[in-house]
């Protein structure tokens, strides 16, 4: 991290696109800003009041064409800005399919991160260079915001929701990680580093052990499986016909049909809601008998549980539960 500069490092694939848009907007703004400033200075000098000058100016003639021009031309230019900004935003919003997922949980005032292979980190994120990384994020308390200036990415981390962001680092190095949404007393200490490594160094790091004892590398999937057993989920979600609850194998990413006829794709948010507020969407053909697990599973546990459900292989048959 440099001591002083006027422009941030660019260390992700998206950074160059954001910077290009930024320079375009600076160029347009500088042109219009200097045009206005120049005109004001010029007109102020040209038409300054002179001693004994006649104040009687000519009547003002307002050409409609001029008014139309300075309405329509700026509008057209801003529409270019809109299109450009929107296309960069859509790129940011859509993680590539081969992105590697990492879980992020924000809480006052730290970042907790976990790799699918098991390693957990606090306020540090190790990632390999040249590999798209997708972050699935939530908060345990208030709203935070995950911000890496060198990558030009930022996403709020909202309690009760999953947000995502993705990046592909292009340069080995250490970069600032900031919380960008005000979250209380130590908001300015909710900072850390993103450490971008060579893929081989990263593999070595990934197979290491956590310094934090007790958090020894158990993958989210394994943690989720333990929770699944511990909370007795399998009692109802047995995966055989006649079970109290629908089978969960292969459920992730599939469209579900509910008792009221509505449909939705089972994503992370849906699974989370089904565990915390089971009555919100009852799958067609089942009774609303599932109890809530509100307050019994923390956010990291929830992510682990969802990861476990995601990992369950789709059965050879389309699944025993009734699909609409």
């Amino acid at each position: 991290m440099p001591k002083f500069s006027l422009f941030p490092e660019s260390a992700s694939t998206i950074a160059g696109q954001v910077d290009a848009l930024f320079f375009f907007m600076i160029a347009v703004s500088a042109f219009f800003g200097l045009l206005i400033a120049g005109l004001i200075v010029f007109l102020s000098i040209r038409y300054r009041r002179r001693a004994g000058s006649n104040e009687a100016g000519d009547p003002v003639h307002v050409p409609i064409a001029l008014e139309a021009a300075w309405t329509v031309i700026p509008l057209a230019i801003t529409m270019v800005m809109f299109y450009w900004g929107a296309s960069v935003y859509m790129t940011m919003a859509r993680p590539p399919d081969d992105a590697h997922e990492i879980f992020v949980v924000g809480k006052q005032w730290m970042w907790k991160l976990q790799h699918l292979e098991g390693r957990r980190e606090i306020n540090e994120l190790h990632v390999p260079v040249g590999q798209p990384i997708k972050l699935t994020m939530t908060s345990e308390d208030v709203i935070h915001s995950f911000y890496v200036p060198a990558f030009r990415i930022k996403s709020d981390v909202v309690p009760g929701r999953y947000s995502t962001a993705w990046f592909e680092a292009t340069q080995v190095g250490t970069y600032h990680l900031f919380c960008a949404e005000y979250c209380g007393t130590e908001h300015s200490q909710m900072i850390g580093s993103v450490i971008v490594m060579d893929p081989s160094d990263f593999q070595t790091w990934l197979s290491g052990t956590d310094a934090d004892a007790g958090m020894a590398a158990s993958s989210p999937k394994d943690t989720g499986q333990q929770l699944f057993t511990q909370k007795g989920c399998a009692t109802c979600h047995r995966g055989v016909s006649g079970s109290m609850g629908p089978a969960l194998a292969g459920v992730f990413g599939r469209e579900r049909t509910f008792a009221d006829g509505s449909k939705a794709v089972a994503d992370e948010a849906y699974l989370r809601q089904s565990i915390l507020s089971p009555q919100a969407h009852v799958v067609a053909g089942y009774q609303p008998v599932m109890p809530t697990f509100q307050g019994q599973i923390d956010e990291e546990g929830m992510l682990a549980l969802i990861q476990y459900i995601k990992s369950l292989p789709a059965e050879t048959s389309p699944g025993p539960e009734k699909q609409g």
Binding site: V18, F82, G85, K154
Partner: peptide
Amino acid sequence: AALGLDVH
């Protein structure tokens, strides 16, 4: 107002 730039 420019979406991709505002994110940063």
